[in-house]
Design a protein around this nucleic acid. Sequence first.
DNA 1: ATAAATAAGTTAAACGTTTAACTAAATACT
DNA 2: AGTATTTAGTTAAACGTTTAACTTATTTAT
Lengths: 339, 339
Amino acid sequence: MTNSTIKDVAKMANVSIATVSLVVHDHARISKETKEKVLAAITKLNYHPSHSARGLVKRKSGNIGFILTDDHFLRTEPFYTHIFIGTEFEAHESEFYVLLTTIDSNFNDDNKLPRFILERNIDGIIVAGKVPSSFIEKLNKYHFPIIFVDYWPCTKKYSGVLVDNVNGGKLATEYLIKSVNKNIAFIGGDIEHPSISDRLNGYKKAILDSGGSINERLIDIIEDYPGRTNGYNAAQRLFDNNKDIKAIFACNDAMAIGAMQYMKDNGIKIPDDCSIIGFDDVVSDDAIEPALSTIRVPKMEMGTEAMKLMAHLIKNNIKGNQKVLIPVELIIRKSTKRI
Amino acid sequence: MTNSTIKDVAKMANVSIATVSLVVHDHARISKETKEKVLAAITKLNYHPSHSARGLVKRKSGNIGFILTDDHFLRTEPFYTHIFIGTEFEAHESEFYVLLTTIDSNFNDDNKLPRFILERNIDGIIVAGKVPSSFIEKLNKYHFPIIFVDYWPCTKKYSGVLVDNVNGGKLATEYLIKSVNKNIAFIGGDIEHPSISDRLNGYKKAILDSGGSINERLIDIIEDYPGRTNGYNAAQRLFDNNKDIKAIFACNDAMAIGAMQYMKDNGIKIPDDCSIIGFDDVVSDDAIEPALSTIRVPKMEMGTEAMKLMAHLIKNNIKGNQKVLIPVELIIRKSTKRI
DNA sequence: ATAAATAAGTTAAACGTTTAACTAAATACT
DNA sequence: AGTATTTAGTTAAACGTTTAACTTATTTAT
């Protein structure tokens, strides 16, 4: 039951350890018969190459760091948890291990970088979600590939795996235009966040493309975090201003759910009086009454894409600065008037 | 910026690499002056021992596996996420890396064990939360230490880090006895789960100790998962049966919140008509109206304790079968009548 | 004064891989 | 037939540590 090594396999298959290694790496120099012989021994002995030994000679740790802020990780909506699971899943293919760690959401110059960075025990880093800029600055000193997921800092030195927010906003708004035509509001928070502003851009684009014009009084944006309470308040301001709102596109599901609560509390029928579409497709959307229409973000896929890209960067020994856009999907449930 | 090795340090400090290694391990054989010299070089070169090289010679991976079911990890309440962060935090001390992976919540004999187990790239495993018994059976074949957190399978071959559920149930119930005296109900789900049945045991113990007797009609237990909806339904059954319930001790906060919703919907004033105490102390407790009194479970501490125990087991090369009880704390907020 | 013990290092082998350089046999080319 | 090339493997060094065994110098005991 103790680990068998390459030597045991070599002995059993009657070849040198180099041959075993070449078989493991599927090298062309090995004949079919030898390969089969070795493979049989590997299976019999349940041999797996030692991560440490391999790492030592290749001067790679075989680890990828996955970093996010603690409040993102501890958030009740497991958005980033899904992304992490995606990377972990995909790591199987490329034989990486993923080391997850959190940083302080108020990370500043006095904070230390995660241990695996200081010890250089990773071959690359995946950063999920918005992180403090002082963290990114510290990261700049290091020479491994860094991939940002769901957030791309302005410095275009790194790769990013991003939701196609503009298109998502466009899809949602286009549907609302087709079903209710006019008076479509947008509610959002944390507009500094590129994802949110892109969703707003998609909203504007859809309206302009359809021949309409932007009415700033239908757009309610706050600086604060886009959560349920702020969604509730946004809806209140909106309806106070304009009784005739026919649809709301919320920058995320949390705000949408808050806005729905306001409508319920004030006798506004969903979707008869007012349609609403969210963004993200979180677990509770289906449970809520009426079920919330939304833009589905394939969270796990973002993780797998990030890890695929990482494997590519490492294999080719490049740092990369490309942008991968993850397509989204409009999910129509019960909170929207049918077209 | 590239990694410096033990050789670089040795050269700079004018000693052999063995000396450097001995300094790093704080070995007594090294004089104070040499030690300082070496330490200075280490700092100057920002030297960190290679995880791989160390792992190779020690025949340890330096990794600890952290395993839980996917639905536990993806649950909106980040209970196990907190526990994980605790292990990750404590791992700093013992220089371990933590590899987090999920298993299928319907794990059966056809499922494969996590990769790092098959490849034997971990020195020990921490299992968080209830896992399928077929998973545990498969684990039985391996010879590394295993620690269960927040769930301890009947086979007492492994160590467990567990919430003091009995005492928690007792604390909550004792408070309710003091404040409302009589007609204190218990609602719970998944009674097979040792944690839940222990909470019920604490409830019973408190009542008996106070000279009262157990009224089965005040105890509502379902087999299903103890979530909000089931809490709502449990409260409904309870009040249908007995209008005079003065307090509810819920087996967890989710059920408590559900039960509160039922009371709000039916004009039962909290805490004037009926007090309620939950269990776990989840994030939303404070946000809910009125703020929920509960039993606080120190989640991060469970993680750190598990990792401390793991480091101990590994250092002494034992498998261990001890039980660590984590004390809980009664948190009184607004959902309970004052004593 | 000499032997024994202690202190403070050093040497060298080992851990399990990978891979460049080498070898030996078989095949292809003049 | 003799040389060049291809095929299919082997050899051996290297990766960065740890640690048992060794050395050398100093102190202590007799």
